[in-house]
């Protein structure tokens, strides 16, 4: 598995630092700032994958990388692996528009799958509502909260490249635990069917979505309650 450390045009090294879907504690942030300063970092740049790139002189990268572990941060894996997960600030405490705990789900997915080898880089995005601030339709595996513990899943999206494509919905209104089962299934099919260095979306175009579509029991929708039960009680009080 490769690591996100890249030589830049100016001779500095970009070290890609991954946190829990982009969430840092104040201690981690101040610790990272201290580490960056101690290692003569030139700049720190936010990335589109909710990681941070720290630009360092080559002689400082090893010390910086080692010290990251004390902050419970890590260098993001790179190459043909599951990449850092993007998740929105959707949970019970943050975004008022969120319909479910997208952030916690994204963090758990990242903890379980980050760095897992695959034929070509595999990007995951989790959104707390259909507004989709994390662009779930542009990810290899996109999860969209539908409310009341249910999620939609799109597969095969890719936002970059010369021929970007939107993912296709393969499951609607599935419960949280089935999101993991479905991800496991898609990853297995991807590893089994894709050619080396072939994106999931391209493999779907070549073989058809049916080859990657999970079995019906994995995508069976969970019936939605008529409405938020707490609100019903509040309304009738």
């Amino acid at each position: 598995m490769g690591q996100g450390i890249f030589k830049q045009k100016n001779g500095l090294y970009a070290v890609d630092v991954a946190a829990a879907c982009g969430v840092l504690t104040p201690e981690q942030l101040t610790g990272l700032a201290r580490l960056a300063a101690e290692n003569n970092a030139f700049r720190v740049k936010m990335t589109t994958r909710q990681t941070m790139v720290v630009l360092l002189p080559p002689e400082n990268t090893a010390a910086f990388k080692e010290a990251l572990e004390t902050l419970k941060l890590r260098v993001a894996p790179f190459g043909n692996v599951v990449r850092p997960v993007k998740a929105c600030a959707g949970n019970t405490a943050l975004c008022p528009r969120s319909l479910d705990d997208a952030l916690e789900l994204g963090i758990e997915i990242q903890e379980r799958y980050l760095g897992r080898p695959v034929p070509k880089d595999f990007k995951i995005a989790v959104a707390g509502c259909p507004r989709g601030c994390t662009d779930p339709h542009c990810a290899d595996f996109g999860v969209i909260a539908a409310g009341q513990g249910r999620f939609h899943v799109a597969v095969g999206g890719m936002g970059g490249g010369t021929r970007p494509r939107h993912g296709e919905i393969v499951a609607r209104d599935i419960p949280r635990d089935k999101v993991f089962a479905l991800l496991e299934y898609v990853l297995e099919r991807f590893c089994a069917l894709a050619e080396p260095r072939e994106k999931l979306g391209r493999a779907i175009e070549r073989l058809g979505l049916a080859a990657f579509r999970p079995p019906a029991e994995m995508t069976a929708a969970e019936a939605a309650p008529a409405a938020d039960e707490e609100f019903i009680r509040f309304l009738q009080d």
Binding site: P96, C129, G147, D228, F231, I232, L235
Partner: peptide
Amino acid sequence: LKFAASRGILDIPGAAKL
């Protein structure tokens, strides 16, 4: 409005049906 204010939310799933 009261429910949304008390919960700090802007969406109430299924409420439109009520």
